[in-house]
Nucleic acid binder design. Sequence first.
DNA 1: CCAGACGTTGTT
DNA 2: GTCTGG
DNA 3: CCAGACGTTGTT
DNA 4: GTCTGG
Length: 231
Amino acid sequence: MCGRFTLRTPTERWARQFALEELPLFAPRYNMAPTQRLPVVRLSANGTRACDELRWGFIPSWSAGEKHRAPLINARAESIAEKPSFRDAVHFRRCLIPADGFYEWEQDGRQRQPYFVSRRDDRPFAFAGLWESWRPPEGGPAIETFVIVTTEANALLSRFHDGRMPVMLQGDHGERWLFEESRHAEDLIPLLGAYPEEELTCVRVSARVNSVRHDDPSCLEAPLRTQTLFD
DNA sequence: CCAGACGTTGTT
DNA sequence: GTCTGG
DNA sequence: CCAGACGTTGTT
DNA sequence: GTCTGG
């Protein structure tokens, strides 16, 4: 699964990689968390790419309210085309989520030990995402939200509790995820596989990342206790 | 027909 | 234990 | 995802 | 909104 991630790369670098015409300006992020407004790349009305800030935690358009519900931060690639919450979005509201790493946790006694996963070359990449617009019943402006698609974990990630990992779109899959026509959207589901583990690295990091208050380079420091690096 | 769910994950 | 907030 | 609160009353 | 269960 994926419940926290990073986007440390300077904006101009990842904006170029995502072929954005307008240059957004975002501070480097080391601890992006559910409920926060985070940058998402999607198609605008005129068919070009746009980068907008959407809230992480998908609220279906028919939802009675945003409270009293577990946040939908991940969606299983295997079922998004059928699930009532997501299938419209698969056709009409796909998006890319710029990132350059993500965290996984292991229960270590009574501690929650975080690990950081990123590309060996440390370049940014795109998570596959879906977005939705929800209008509060009591009125007020619509809230736009997104969810990150997950898939079965590769060998590197399968050691973590649930055997899932976020979909990192490789090669031209990001372009296809963004631009494929609605009627061919279901052809994209087979592209949502695990990223090759040989291109990734996974290291133990400081438990400072556990708290969303910490959003700085200290999140990636090595933990104080005996450290095992495996990658 | 209406009421109620609609998601992800892991749990002994 | 369960829910909310970030 | 994890951290932190979780209640009422009345009040320093 | 749309599907399932009764």
